[in-house]
Computed example of a mutant assay.
Amino acid sequence: MSIEGYVPPGRGVRVAGWLAAGGMLVYAGLKVYMALRGEIGMPGSPAPPEVQARFEHPALAQAGNAALGVGAAAVAWAAVARWGARIPRWLLLGALALAVVMQLAGAVVTVARGGPGMSLSDWAMSGVQLAAWCVVTVSYAARTRGPARVRPWAAYAAYGAYGAFGCALAYGLMKLNWALGGAFLARETPLPPTLREDLLARTDGMVAGHWLSVALAVLGMAAALHLAGHFGPHGRLRRRVLLVGAWAGCAFMAARAVGLLGYGFAGDLLVFSGRASVPAEYATFAREQAWWDLLLWSPYWLLFGACWGVAARRYRRADGPGRAAVSHAGQAVGA
């Protein structure tokens, strides 16, 4: 999309955009306040002492959360502002989708921890923020949709590649948050008890692993853009590397989602049925992790793997004239 093709949003959408951006700026300000106090949590509801003790640098963790809030506010603003038309559609739409997912995950975490004790204002703020982000995202997708210019399979290839890009971006941002001291969804990550303790304690090995994951996420984002038809034409070696990597990612992530690697849908159901070999002292912990894996992590890995598979299948078929189709698909989706 370009400035010339900019379609301004309606008044209601602009209000939703400013609500979304304002809410994230308020969140960032509260996190800055807690960073200055050197505490984990939010004003009026700091984390328990045992949680505070897990963070060696609480101010750094809160500063990382504040940075995410400012970045999310900029995304919401760009979606309703004229200058946002200068940003590639695929990039801004992916960031909006990621923000909606993060808002939904945050709402789930808030409800799970607050439960019936949440006040009416807390419920209202969570609902308004989530609704505002959904309105902004749907409106942006509709206003910037261009005419169909490619064959269906080429379009699916681009959507699959951009889906993989979005999943890699979400994973990389989460790992970057952890590397900088944040803890977004860290306690909800399914891990053995000892590894979970290392994760929350931010051992040197874990922090190094976070940075390695960030690098892998960036590599995955670059591969997804190549599969979508960008940075072409691709030579034979690059095509083979992309295909091997995409199919390997598809197989690994599908195996993780199904449960062939220890966690996944099958493992979660074994925990719920009582057939999993879990020590009695970890039974409650295992069920809590299984719920998070069933509702969040396994669906995420299944989606991630499916995106790699869809993108790789069409990319493999795109030879000769087909390569132009894939490239045009990327331009159509990213216009």
Rank of each mutant, 00 (worst) to 15 (best):
V111K: 07
V109T: 08
W77I: 09
V80P: 00
V101D: 04
R151W: 09
V138I: 06
S119P: 10
R149M: 09
V138Y: 02
S126R: 02
D122Y: 11
W123C: 07
A131T: 13
A76H: 13
G94H: 05
Q129V: 07
G94P: 12
W123F: 10
C134P: 01
W90T: 03
Y140H: 02
V128A: 12
M125Q: 04
R149W: 10
A141K: 03
V136F: 12
P147I: 15
A131F: 08
W123M: 05
A112Q: 07
R145F: 07
A124Q: 04
A131D: 06
L130D: 00
W77R: 05
R151Q: 06
M125R: 02
A112M: 09
A99F: 09
L93T: 14
L91P: 00
D122T: 15
A131N: 10
P88C: 05
T137Y: 12
W77D: 05
A124F: 14
L93M: 14
S126I: 06
A148F: 00
A141W: 11
V108D: 10
A124V: 07
A78C: 08
W83M: 04
R82P: 03
R151P: 15
R113E: 08
G114Q: 02
M102I: 12
G84V: 08
A148G: 15
S126D: 01
T137F: 09
G84S: 02
A107R: 05
M118N: 00
T137I: 12
L104D: 03
M102F: 04
P88Y: 13
R143K: 05
A85V: 08
V128M: 13
A141R: 00
P147G: 13
R86T: 09
R113A: 11
V150M: 10
V109S: 09
R113P: 01
G146E: 11
I87C: 14
P147T: 08
A112K: 02
W133H: 02
R143N: 04
G115N: 14
Q103I: 13
G115D: 08
A105L: 12
G117A: 15
G127C: 02
A148E: 14
G94Q: 10
G106K: 12
R113L: 10
A78V: 14
V150K: 00
L96I: 11
D122F: 06
A76G: 14
P116H: 11
G84K: 15
V109G: 01
A148L: 06
R145P: 00
S121I: 14
A124M: 13
L98K: 04
A141Y: 03
S119G: 15
A141H: 01
A85M: 14
A107D: 10
W77Q: 01
V135K: 09
W77G: 01
L130E: 01
W123K: 05
